[in-house]
């Protein structure tokens, strides 16, 4: 999906301080019957967010007005389990542009990047600081500078540099996607096929 260009973000964040959040929680399987990419945001974290009568669970963070913004902060090993890209679509559709964690599952990381959602891996110490700051003040804002590969806690000025390979960075900055790239090298692919 060719996505919007991604450059600089300043926003408060929504904290989910739980490790190993799997994609079945992000979007339960019963919502995977759709044949388009749209509308998954309504069911993001469905079973943590709503009870069986579809009433919002008040103790879940997405139902707490205090927390908002387009950054999701989660415990380590976010996005494990099923490869369903619907998880990335749900996060994107809900309005998150960034997910911060100390560790991401591989397939989720690829899926997020392919949908213009930036997964930022920070150290576990920095993640703890972020959670603490949000706990102290839910309005704490963060800036994310993709060009400099930096995430900064605006209130304290603490920052950390994050990794992203330069190809993916270019893609995000320019709104390109992998298929455009592959289509451009089709002749190379055909040469490879003839050789093998």
């Amino acid at each position: 999906m060719p996505s919007e260009k991604f450059t600089y973000i300043e926003s408060s964040a929504v904290p989910i301080n739980i490790e190993n959040v799997d994609t079945d929680q992000i979007i339960p399987a019963r919502f995977l019957k759709a044949t388009t990419r749209d509308g998954f945001g309504d069911n993001l974290f469905r079973d943590w967010r709503f009870d069986k009568n579809d009433q919002p669970k008040v103790d879940f963070v997405l139902n707490n007005e205090k927390y908002n913004g387009n950054i999701l902060v989660a415990g380590k090993n976010f996005g494990s389990g099923s490869s369903r890209e619907h998880a990335a679509w749900a996060i994107h559709d809900y309005g998150f542009k960034v997910v911060v964690s100390s560790f991401f599952a591989d397939i989720f990381k690829n899926n997020a990047l392919n949908n213009g959602v930036l997964p930022i891996q920070v150290s576990s110490e920095f993640l703890e600081i972020i959670f603490n700051e949000i706990e102290k003040d839910s309005d704490t804002s963060f800036t994310i500078d993709l060009g400099k590969q930096e995430i900064t806690i605006s209130t304290t000025g603490q920052k950390e540099v994050f990794e992203i390979n330069s190809y993916k960075k270019e893609c995000l900055l320019n709104g390109y996607d992998d298929i455009d790239y592959l289509l451009n090298i089709k002749d190379k692919i055909e040469v490879f096929e003839k050789r093998n």
């Binding site: 990419r37 890209e85 397939i107 690829n110 392919n114 949908n115 996607d177 790239y181 592959l182 289509l183």
Partner: peptide, 19 residues
């Protein structure tokens, strides 16, 4: 295993971009 954007890549080019 791959995500749907990657399924699309393979359908379109029989290739995938992977670190």
């Amino acid at each position: 295993g791959i995500g749907t954007s990657e399924v699309e890549m393979v359908l379109a080019t029989q290739c995938i971009l992977q670190p």
